[in-house]
Amino acid sequence: MLSPADILTIPFDDWVNTLVRDYLVPNFRPFFRALQVPVTTVLNAFDAFFQFIPMVVFTLVLAFIAWRVVGRGIAIFTLLALTFIDMIGLWTETMTTLSMIVTSVLFCTIIGVPIGILVAGSNKLWSVVRPILDIMQTIPSFVYLVPIVMLFGVGMVPGIIATIIFALPPIIRLTNLGIRNVRGDLIEAAEAFGSTRWQMLWEVQLPLALRTVMAGLNQTLMLSLSMVVIAALIGAGGLGLTVYTGLGRLDVGGATAGGVGIVLLAIILDRITQALGEQSGVRTPSLRQMLVSVFRPRGAVTGETNKTGN
């Protein structure tokens, strides 16, 4: 049977090799190295912090937050789950994973929210960014790893960079969506009173989009969690590494323990951020107030949100 390959073969892999090895790596390596610096700094700070806090203190604080934000059920769950993780001997790994996730989410927010705001303001820009996000979300996560390794090397930080790239799209999409969905008459009202572009953003668009942005943050967080296992392939540590080494040694018990740790952490973080998103409905003006509400007498906060709860 005649196939097109008999007539012409395309050395696609060679082309990519040439591009990455002979062009990007020698010319841009210092640039990519420099990119790692902020990630390394933040990651180290978080890791040091989480490793420093005694297990009991951390557990109580997180359970307290869960209680204020979500409710008693999740607070008890947090307490039990973290205790269990500690008892199966994975506390250090869990804190490493947590600092990786927090770092990744932080960078996703810092990069994603402004991009979301920018593309919300321009249909042209959105028509360029949108297909890029589509591609980012359809490429299997393993495929990222090779160019990441070529450009950044192996280790913790390249793993987090892969995670950031993987988890970035939802927060961009939902920030864009949240800002675009702000009612037109409110924008017009803000404009009619002489708001500058910045005042409009700060006073009207962001507070009203906050709920949707928080939903994006939640999705980004979940994607980060799912990526940490894969990132272990290129040398990232934490629970992902436990699972990965477990798999490599056919150590079912070890792999399962790591997996359970990830699932428990995922449930806790998911429920807390989801509830934060719901609280930041139209009523709560700012992130600051949202955080303040965590520490205010309980009745006052939930009473208000229940009244509007729509």
Binding site: E188, G194, V204, R283
Partner: peptide
């Protein structure tokens, strides 16, 4: 400047900021 100091608008559907 004109919008801030001279001319204000009242809207059909109120357009109050819910937050």
């Amino acid at each position: 400047d004109i919008r801030r100091n001279k001319i204000a608008m009242v809207f059909q559907h109120f357009a109050l900021f819910p937050h």
